[in-house]
C-alpha cells in the first residue's frame, strides 16, 4: 500500500536547515492499522504529510499503491489525495462557515460526483458516525467529539483506501477519544488502511503495529512485545 525508501525531508530557513526526516524507510500493507508514536518534533507530521501527498520529499522514493508519486504534478497529486486518501486532523479542521452536510460535501465536489451521488454518500457516512440529525448544524454547534466524528465522516465519504490521522484524539477527553478510536477500528475492519499518529500509549497499543519515529527515523521496534516499554519510555 505505502512504501517509503530512504525518504528525506529538510526544511531550509534563512539561518538553519532542519532535517525532519532522514533516510526514512517504511512499508505499510493493505488493511493494516499502524500507530505512530514519537517525541514531539521527531517528524511524525512530516511523515504523514509526505504519505498523504501534502508535501513532497526532498529525496528518496515513495510508492503509493505501487505508483511512484514523486514526479506527479499538482493536479494529479490533488486527484490522488482526493480519491485514495482520507485525512483526520487533531484540530478537526471542519470548515466553520459550512454546515456538516456541506463540509462532507467538500471532497465529493472535488471528486466530481453528481448531486445525487453526493447526497447518498453524505447521508450514509453521517449515519455511520451517528450524526444524521445534525446535518444542517454548523461545526461550532457540536462538541469536539462530534466534530471529530464529522471529520471522520468527511474523510470516509470518498471511500478512501488509506486513512491518515494526525493525533485525532489529541483534543478530546478520554471517553470521546475511545469512541473515535472504536470508529477507526471499525473502519479498519472494513478494509481501510490506517496510519494514526498518537501520543496515547493505550491507543497506540490497540493498533496492529506501532512504529516509533525518533529524530526523523524509524526506531527499530517491530516487535509487538517491545511496544509497551517503547511507548512508555
Amino acid at each position: 500500500m505505502l512504501k517509503m525508501h530512504n525518504v528525506r525531508k529538510s526544511y531550509r530557513t534563512d539561518t538553519i536547515e532542519t532535517h525532519a526526516l532522514r533516510d526514512f524507510s517504511l512499508e505499510v500493507n493493505e488493511g493494516e492499522f499502524v500507530s505512530v508514536t514519537g517525541p514531539s518534533g521527531s517528524g511524525k507530521t512530516t511523515f504523514l504529510n509526505i504519505a498523504g501527498l501534502l508535501e513532497t520529499p526532498t529525496g528518496g522514493q515513495y510508492l503509493l499503491d505501487g505508483q511512484d508519486v514523486s514526479d506527479l504534478n499538482d493536479r494529479d497529486r490533488s486527484r490522488l489525495r482526493n480519491e485514495k486518501i482520507g485525512f483526520i486532523f487533531q484540530g478537526f479542521n471542519l470548515i466553520p462557515d459550512l454546515d456538516l452536510f456541506d463540509n462532507i460535501d467538500v471532497p465529493l465536489r472535488y471528486r466530481g460526483f453528481n448531486a445525487k451521488e453526493r447526497k447518498k454518500r453524505i447521508e450514509k457516512v453521517l449515519e455511520q458516525v451517528g450524526l444524521s440529525a445534525r446535518a444542517r448544524h454548523l461545526p461550532a454547534q457540536l462538541s469536539g467529539g462530534q466534530q471529530q466524528r464529522v471529520a471522520i465522516a468527511r474523510a470516509l465519504a470518498g471511500e478512501p483506501r488509506f486513512l491518515l490521522a494526525d493525533e485525532p484524539t489529541g483534543n478530546l477527553d478520554s471517553l470521546m477519544a475511545r469512541q473515535v478510536m472504536e470508529l477507526l477500528e471499525f473502519i479498519n475492519e472494513w478494509g481501510t488502511t490506517i496510519v494514526m499518529v498518537t501520543h496515547d500509549p493505550d491507543l497506540a497499543r490497540r493498533a496492529h503495529r506501532n512504529i516509533q519515529i525518533v529524530d526523523g527515523q524509524v526506531a527499530d521496534l517491530r516487535l509487538q512485545s517491545a511496544l509497551g516499554e517503547a511507548v512508555t519510555a
Binding site: 493536479r75 490533488s78 489525495r81 470548515i95 466553520p96 472535488y110
Partner: peptide, 16 residues
C-alpha cells in the same frame, strides 16, 4: 489560510 490547506488536503487543486 487553514481552510484553504484543508481543502487542498481534501483534494482541491490549486486552480480549484
Amino acid at each position: 489560510q487553514k481552510q484553504i490547506g484543508v481543502r487542498r488536503a481534501l483534494g482541491a487543486s490549486r486552480s480549484a
